[in-house]
Design a protein around this nucleic acid. Structure first.
Length: 672
DNA sequence: GAGTTTGAAACT
DNA sequence: CAGTTTCAAACTC
């Protein structure tokens, strides 16, 4: 709700800079501090303000950058942990040691190796220090992910791996058309994602600091130093922040989630970030996991780590506000609420069918501690096949991948590959499930818990699974199918392509159980049933624009028992409203009439509401293609797509309220 | 755990 | 852009 913006607001605002610097306190502090603030040349690519603009011409090695960062942190905060750079007792370290035997790693990393050791000690320190706090995703498990071990693979020699790496890297680079590509990489490398609340908090601290010292470069070594003066600026966290920020950030960095820049955000981020939390959105897709992590999720165990994967994003992607909420909550309430569910949780938990939940349950109960991640064998975890890679996170120890290059140590390769993929498909790393956030504005507090709608950005293409299995990305994402889908025989429980949803199905079933001749026939054959349903619906003009209705999925109270759909799903959704549809399913004339009426109302806002919400706007054109075999009657998306939440009161006496152009993802546009 | 199925991603 | 191949997750046994 409002919280989301809060955090971001704090982050960017350049205003604070001048304010602080002009303040007597600041001057005083400056005079006291032996450390002279170092100002780097203003660089638009600086970390501050989440500036994603084109990279600096000067190439900066990602490794170098990160090394500096980490080592600096270490120096500054680590008076206590500076000592040992390796801890044999630490599993992570063990792993590292193992890896360190590889020449490759030494060669490749050099300074990194040192940093890694530092990292390890830091980690240890932090572990001791924040044990209760962050003990994140399975503690060690998470940490392990931080260990950049060489891609020797489980079965390859280090030499092979190195060659492989070179090959991959060359390959990627060769294909890259971006002139300043390396700069981009280095630039992107700074955009680390924070997949823990702590990390995000740290990040925020950093951003805040940067706000007051925006010129300082992340890698200039100023950060930590300037912290001191900063501490005064932030009375509430005074002493804590510097250390916390750094250590936490550090932890965040150590964690494998990467904050890959989002295509198209480079130019907009600056402004967007300054104005609203939405700025998170641009990269939210890749951050979601991180943010999710930031939610108490990270504090529980196994599930956390998994939540880092894109899959879990499902629930979170739902709404940025929710995410931000979570983030904020985490920040504000300290980590003591670790065990408390963030707003998002309820929703997910309620969704029995929700894949994330499912997965988590599975993990929790079934696989125990093993945060199972990817299992790539041939892709080197550098393709979208790899869940980790696709989710924007590094592979971690629990992964069973072979010859994995998706490790911090191969950051360049990862980023390069990513870049390449993005060049092919700018949305490749965008959240697969896009959630409409209009509910936020509409329903207030509950909004964050009950995102109005969501959909798979691209839609599925299921042929045999009927969208009833996790093969289906929509289903897996806990969202209904939409016109974007090209699925056949869609039975997606979260909402079918034809516009029905769980509620619809239930209502339908009831009807079917009772008398409907059609339904009886349909029951006879499942496949037939689907087709028939589609046909029946296709008869209804109102269903012409079957925008799927995922609302139920996200609703905490959307349990099967509770047939009360969320306000929006109940009222909105228009054509897709199951109740509505089922009600008129066999009353074409009525529905037709109504549809006409509606049509006159809908056209206005619905398109906007439906299409705009998605940051990732897809041309409706291809959607036309999505018509099922018998979907000839399915109207083009632009017709009167009834977006859930955009229309209210369809059932209420035929009166319909249109929530004009409520952007699902207002996030992109600076608001305030 | 091995084998199969499935559909996305990648390739042609 | 359509068809094919590759890939890894999901699923089944």
């Amino acid at each position: 709700m409002d919280t989301p913006q809060k955090s971001v607001t704090q982050i960017g605002t350049p205003i604070s800079k001048s304010r602080f610097e002009d303040s007597p306190v600041f001057n005083y502090i400056n005079s006291l501090s032996p450390i002279r603030p170092v100002r780097s040349i203003p660089n638009p690519n600086q970390f501050s303000s989440l500036n994603f603009t084109s990279p600096p011409s000067v190439f900066t090695s990602p490794h170098l950058t990160s090394s500096h960062k980490e080592s600096r942190f270490f120096k500054t905060h680590n008076s206590s942990s500076s000592s040992s750079s390796s801890d044999p007792t630490n599993p992570v370290e063990s792993r590292e040691d193992e890896s360190s035997t590889s020449n490759e790693e030494v060669v490749a990393q050099g300074e990194d190796t040192k940093d890694l050791n530092i990292d390890a000690s830091m980690r240890e320190e932090e572990t001791n220090r924040n044990d209760s706090v962050a003990s994140p995703c399975g503690g060690d498990t998470t940490d392990l992910s931080l260990v950049p071990y060489a891609p020797r693979g489980e079965n390859g020699s280090s030499e092979d791996a190195r060659m492989e790496l070179q090959k991959v890297y060359d390959n990627v680079q060769g294909k890259s058309e971006t002139p300043d590509w390396e700069s981009l990489i280095s630039d992107a490398s700074e955009l680390l994602i924070f997949d823990s609340p702590d990390a995000s908090e740290a990040f925020r601290c950093f951003m805040m600091q940067r706000a007051s010292n925006s010129e300082a470069r992340f890698s200039n070594g100023v950060e930590v130093q300037t912290m001191q003066p900063d501490s005064n600026r932030e009375p509430e966290s005074a002493n804590a922040i510097p250390y916390e920020a750094v250590s936490l950030l550090h932890r965040g960095i150590r964690r494998r989630c990467l904050d890959f820049e989002m295509p198209g955000n480079k130019q907009t981020n600056n402004t967007a970030c300054e104005s609203s939390s939405r700025c998170v959105v641009p990269s939210i897709g890749l951050h979601l996991n991180a943010i999710l992590m930031s939610s108490k999720d990270c504090k529980t165990n196994v599930s956390h780590d998994y939540s880092c994967s894109g899959k879990i994003q499902v629930g979170l992607q739902s709404s940025i506000s929710t995410l931000q909420d979570t983030l904020d909550q985490t920040e504000n309430e300290t980590r003591e609420d670790a065990d408390q569910d963030v707003p998002v949780e309820p929703a997910l938990q309620e969704l029995n069918l929700s894949s994330p939940k499912k997965k988590r349950v599975k993990l929790d109960s079934g696989e125990g501690e093993s945060c199972k991640r990817c299992n790539c064998k041939k892709s080197k975890c550098l393709k979208l096949y790899c869940e980790c890679f696709a989710a924007g996170v590094y592979c971690i120890e629990p992964c069973s991948c072979i010859d994995c290059f998706n490790k911090p140590i191969h950051e360049d390769v990862v980023l390069a590959t990513r870049k390449q993929i993005e060049s092919r498909n700018p949305l490749a790393f965008a959240p697969k499930v896009i959630r409409n956030s209009d509910s936020v504005q509409e329903t207030g507090d509950d909004a964050s818990k009950t995102p109005a709608s969501a959909r798979h950005k691209r839609g599925c293409n299921c042929k045999k699974s009927n969208c009833l299995k996790k093969y289906c990305e929509c289903y897996q994402g806990g969202v209904g199918c939409s016109i974007n889908c090209r699925c056949e025989g869609c039975k997606n429980a979260f909402g079918r392509k034809d516009g029905s949803s769980i509620v619809d199905m239930e209502a339908e079933q009831e009807e079917e159980n009772e008398t409907s001749e059609k339904s009886r026939t349909a029951k006879a054959q499942q496949n037939t049933e689907v087709l028939m349903r589609k046909e029946a619906r296709s008869d209804l003009p109102t269903t012409a624009t079957p925008i799927y209705r995922p609302e139920l999925v996200q609703l905490p109270f959307s349990s099967s028992k509770n047939r009360m759909p969320p306000p929006q799903s109940l009222l909105g959704g228009g054509s897709s409203s199951g109740i509505f549809n089922s009600q008129y399913l066999r009353k074409p004339d009525i529905s037709l009439t109504q549809s006409r009426i509606e049509k006159s109302f809908e056209t206005v806002a619905e398109d906007g509401a439906e299409e705009m919400p998605e940051i990732l706007i897809h041309s409706p054109i291809p959607n036309i293609k999505s018509v099922s075999p018998n979907g000839k009657r399915v109207s083009p998306p632009h017709m009167e797509s009834s977006s859930s939440g955009s229309i209210l009161g369809r059932r209420s006496g035929g009166r319909k309220l249109i929530l004009q152009s409520i952007p699902s993802f207002p996030s992109l546009t600076p608001q305030h």
